[in-house]
């Protein structure tokens, strides 16, 4: 028996919007720790990892570890039928091939049940070791989204270079080039607007903007985004979900020639 009741149903809606363009079908794993997912995009260039910890749910019952295959587009369609302020409950009986999404409005006078078929998905699960990254940048999530969107109108790839002074995003295309530098900030009154750089070694890596733009669909989940980079490793873009966990995207670099 699985029963997960989340007071902020809008959060689950945002989580699905942040994953559905990258991944079609994925297994959600439910354990006493929480509700999680790890999935690669169809071209195996990017990976998304989601954790919603059990403590973040108002009620969390998961009698045994269970893996439920779902089509993320269909799940997003069902969750779009929930109001942003609705309480959302996920329910599944042991051995059932369906999951039920129950939506309750805040005044609790409207209750909706949506039942979705589960799928058998044969997915690979990658072991991602904890790594010390050479450069870590924390910056406003909306600013990062704006940069990725703007640069993708000029070129297909972005060179991200981190130094002690700041982080530079550069691209080039048929019409010309673009460079955006975000200097590290030192304000203390508005930490959500700060650009913070922890750098052991300067790093410069090239990535496909198409994927970065897809990751920025998670922007509504967090005010800040953390970008971790090391030479010869995939970058990690993390949006922390307050009180619940995180959504992390891993993206393999491109080889500059």
């Amino acid at each position: 028996m699985l029963e997960l009741r989340l007071l902020q149903g809008g959060l689950l809606k945002k989580v699905l919007e942040a994953m559905k363009d990258l991944v079609n079908d994925a297994n959600f794993d439910c354990s006493p720790t929480g509700f999680s997912l790890q999935a690669m995009d169809s071209s195996h260039v990017a990976l998304v990892s989601l954790l919603l910890r059990s403590e973040g749910f108002e009620h969390y019952r998961c009698d045994r570890n269970v893996s439920m295959g779902m089509n993320l587009n269909n799940m997003a369609k069902m969750l779009r039928c929930a109001g942003n302020d609705d309480i959302v409950t996920l329910k599944a009986d042991d051995g059932s091939d369906c999951i039920t999404f129950m939506f309750e409005n805040p005044s609790q006078d409207k209750i909706a049940d949506f039942e979705m078929k589960l799928m058998d998905i044969d997915s690979e699960h990658l072991g991602i070791p904890d790594a010390e990254y050479q450069s870590i940048v924390r910056m406003p999530a909306a600013e990062f989204a704006r940069i990725c969107r703007d640069l993708s109108t000029i070129g297909d790839t972005v060179l991200i270079s981190v130094s002690k002074e700041g982080v530079q995003f550069s691209t080039r295309g048929d019409m010309g080039t673009a460079n955006i530098v975000c200097r590290r900030t030192t304000t203390v009154d508005k930490p959500e607007e700060d650009v913070i750089i922890e750098m052991e070694e300067p790093v410069s890596l090239t990535f496909a903007l198409r994927y970065l733009n897809s990751f920025t669909k998670a922007t509504p989940l967090a005010t800040q985004v953390t970008i971790s980079m090391s030479s010869d490793l995939p970058m990690v873009i993390e949006y922390r979900i307050e009180g619940m966990g995180y959504i992390r995207y891993y993206l393999a670099p491109k080889i500059d020639e």
Binding site: H44, V45, H125, G127, P234, P253
Partner: peptide, 14 residues
């Protein structure tokens, strides 16, 4: 011009 790495090259399959 830029070759794209596959992410499964970096992490072991569990």
């Amino acid at each position: 011009p830029n070759e794209q790495f596959n992410i499964s090259l970096f992490y072991a399959d569990l």
